[in-house]
């Protein structure tokens, strides 16, 4: 992996066939994300935020150009290698939590570690650590149905960070939360970013999220319109 950056996209283009025509979702995106960034992709619907997250998260591959994620070229990754990269190095946070309802909080957070064939004692330690980071260690045996929206999203964050990934990708993580919970969640992620040096990349419309960003990348019609480093008191 290149030490100067975690992710680098060059002339990134993504085209979707739409019947007889095509839709250009990304057009010549050149971006570099360094380790420990807390960045947000903002822009109106259809601006290419989720498409870019898909490619950075190795869920999709570019039509043209290249995307280097932790030293791997996404355009040449096989499905299996991409899954392996996600499993070991990337955490995902979704708008709708996506917790598995039949499993406890502990088991939901444990699940990504099961895929890594980790020893039980090690798993238990990491899960409890992750739950402590998000302040839910005392709810380890609860079921998702017994949690509030904010608590559920914190469990989803714990699941994303339990394997200590270099990168966490979050698509509209506060969209289903009220203002208080949104701030709480964002503060948790800021602490994790500071404590673990985990890189966070968000796609968001939410002003409350933008308030916490170190870097804001505005997309419009698949192009980077503005890329700003923000001076925030909380990051000093």
């Amino acid at each position: 992996m290149n030490n100067s950056y975690l992710i680098k996209t060059e002339r990134l283009k993504k085209i979707y066939p739409m019947g007889p025509t095509t839709l250009v979702a990304l057009e010549g995106v050149n971006l570099i994300f360094k380790k420990g960034e807390f960045s947000g992709l903002v822009g109106p619907s259809g601006s290419g935020k989720t498409t870019l997250l898909n490619i950075i998260g190795t869920l999709d591959s570019p039509s043209q150009g290249s995307a280097d994620v932790m030293g791997r070229k996404v355009e040449t990754l096989s499905h299996k290698s991409a899954a392996q990269l996600r499993n070991q190095h990337i955490g995902f946070i979704f708008q709708t939590f996506n917790l598995l309802p039949v499993y406890t909080v502990f088991e939901n957070v444990e699940f990504p570690l099961l895929l890594q064939n980790m020893a039980t004692s090690e798993r238990k330690k990491l899960v409890m650590e992750a739950l402590e980071w998000v302040g839910l260690a005392d709810r380890a045996q609860s079921k998702p149905a017994q949690l509030s929206g904010g608590q559920s999203q914190r469990v989803a964050i714990a699941r994303a960070i339990v394997k200590k990934p270099e990168l966490v990708i979050a698509d509209e993580p506060t969209a289903n939360l009220d203002a208080e919970n949104s701030h709480h969640i964002m503060k948790t992620m800021v602490q994790l970013n500071k404590g673990l040096d985990t890189t966070f990349i968000f796609a968001t419309h939410d002003e409350k999220v933008m308030h916490y960003l170190k870097r804001k990348i505005s997309l419009n019609d698949g192009r980077v319109e503005k890329d700003e480093i923000l001076e925030r008191e909380m990051w000093k």
């Binding site: 998260g57 869920l59 499905h79 299996k80 899954a83 392996q84 990269l85 996600r86 499993n87 070991q88 990337i90 955490g91 995902f92 979704f94 996506n98 598995l100 699940f111 990504p112 895929l115 699941r159």
Partner: peptide
Amino acid sequence: GEIGLRLAIGEDK
């Protein structure tokens, strides 16, 4: 949803 999540977090198909 569960299967989608599992694929997203890196479980091979």
